[in-house]
């Protein structure tokens, strides 16, 4: 087991290095000069050179990368070109909003996904099951940014129940904050709940067909207790890992929904960085996102290893 963990941990290092090189090169190769952006169109040659020097852009690329990397491994992502804030400050500023949205979406979708998934599994092959299946397929087929637009039209512009976009700190005004959170959270949760419902159903069905469940039933235990005490509990484990992965995806992957609702999250931080060619922000935030995702992925794999020894032993090199 330790060897397995060590091997998987070691594998993440080249992944992270490769990603960071890719990010670095993409930014440098993309047209658009950050020094020009900072100094403005009327910058004098001296001003431009000074800006370049201050941003470290006068160095050759390998040195720029080495400098960045040596700082990054110590957790120092440098100062943003544009705002002159440390990248960490910027990340910490958007983190609460990002987590708020991801959590809200996760909670909503878990509740919904579980109910639909359990209902589907218990009524396997019946009409309800089929209906839930179709509903899930539709939920998966509706692009969330379009759903967001429709929700804005209906709930913000026609009914005027909820604000169309923006964000209020939860600490400052919890009530308002929840009002702003509602539409983007629902938008994200719809698709996610479909993913979860499918997973809950599949995993519950797997368990229901296992011997020990049959034994429990044969022993004459009440159906309710069979499902709750035996089946659900065991079906839960893969579901939890899926949720973990989805949460990781939500942290960085809600870019489009953030854009629809003007939500100041991590995704919009990256987009702003790309638009302004703020190398330090994009490098720092993307590296953090990638690291988070890789770690969550690793954790999931490890959990799987714990749950299913076949994974640990059978697959050389890991998949």
């Amino acid at each position: 087991m330790t060897a397995f963990v060590a091997r998987r941990l070691l594998q993440t290092i080249p992944v992270l290095l490769l990603s960071s090189v890719a990010i670095f090169l993409l930014l440098r190769l993309a047209p658009g000069d950050p020094a020009q952006y900072i100094a403005g169109p009327d910058a004098s040659a001296e001003g431009l050179a000074a800006a370049r020097r201050e941003m470290g852009l006068d160095q050759p690329w390998p040195i720029q990368y080495a400098v960045w990397l040596t700082h990054a491994v110590r957790g120092d992502f440098g100062i943003a070109f544009v705002t002159r804030y440390p990248v960490w400050d910027l990340v910490l500023q958007v983190l609460p909003a990002t987590i708020e949205l991801a959590l809200a979406a996760l909670i909503l979708s878990t509740a919904l996904g579980f109910v639909l998934g359990v209902v589907g599994a218990l009524r396997e092959g019946q009409f309800v099951d089929l209906a839930v299946g179709v509903l899930n397929a539709i939920a998966l087929g509706v692009p969330n940014f379009w759903l967001g637009l429709i929700l804005i039209i209906v709930f913000a512009l026609v009914l005027r129940w909820l604000p169309p976009s923006g964000h209020v700190d939860f600490v400052r005004d919890p009530g308002q904050s929840l009002r702003y959170l509602t539409l983007p959270a629902i938008t994200l949760a719809v698709q996610l709940s479909a993913v979860l419902a499918r997973f809950v159903r599949a995993s519950l069905l797997d368990v229901l067909h296992e011997d020990y469940v049959r034994t429990a039933r044969a022993k004459g235990l009440p159906e309710r207790s069979v499902i709750v005490r035996h089946a659900l509990r065991n079906a839960l484990i893969p579901v939890v890992t899926v949720m973990g992965l989805q949460f990781g995806r939500l942290l960085g992957g809600a870019v489009i929904v953030e854009a629809v609702f003007g939500w100041p999250g991590i995704g919009s931080l990256v987009i702003t960085g790309v638009v302004a060619r703020d190398y330090t922000v994009v490098q720092g935030v993307l590296t953090l996102l990638v690291t988070t995702f890789v770690l969550i992925n690793l954790l999931t794999d490890l959990l799987y290893g714990v749950l299913d020894p076949a994974v640990r032993l059978g697959q050389k090199g890991g998949a």
């Binding site: 512009l157 169309p164 976009s165």
Partner: peptide, 11 residues
Amino acid sequence: STLSVNMDAGA
């Protein structure tokens, strides 16, 4: 577009 949408919705 969100500028006016926010105004319209009182935000």
